[in-house]
Design a protein around this nucleic acid. Structure first.
Length: 112
DNA sequence: TGGATGACTTACA
DNA sequence: TTGTAAGCCATCC
């Protein structure tokens, strides 16, 4: 692809794609991995564009509180929770249970 | 060019 | 604990 606009999205896609099944990550963690800690909003923005991208498990990306803040942006709000539960992630009240335990930090696993 | 928006985060009361 | 305010950077009009 061209990517002449920015590779920021592409970087986000790669990180999200690297999230292993049964694990979740946060916008801030991805943003921090990309080098812009305060650009957590951009990660969400990139996720918005990820809908046109394949193999982007956006359902594994939640906010710092473990809330499925992006579920409303899915074709079906319940699809996100269903996918998470299908991978073995417990979801309670739109919130990931044991989020601290299931949290997957890209900078930590990618050995940045 | 500039203001407004956004799937966030942190800090303070 | 919950609510409000500011910061952050890229995109859109």
């Amino acid at each position: 692809m061209k990517q002449d606009k920015t590779n920021f999205f592409d970087l986000v896609y790669q990180v999200v794609r690297l999230i292993p099944p049964g694990r979740v990550s946060s916008y801030g963690a991805i943003a921090a991995y990309l080098g812009s800690k305060g650009s957590a909003r951009m990660v969400g923005w990139a996720m918005n564009a990820s809908h046109q991208q394949a193999n982007i498990p956006a359902h594994r990306v939640v906010n710092r509180q473990g809330l499925l803040s992006g579920k409303h942006h899915f074709p079906d709000p319940q699809a996100m929770q269903r996918l998470l539960e299908k991978e073995g992630i417990a979801v309670e009240s739109d919130r990931v249970k044991d989020f601290d335990r299931l949290f997957w930090d890209p900078a930590q696993h990618l050995h940045l």
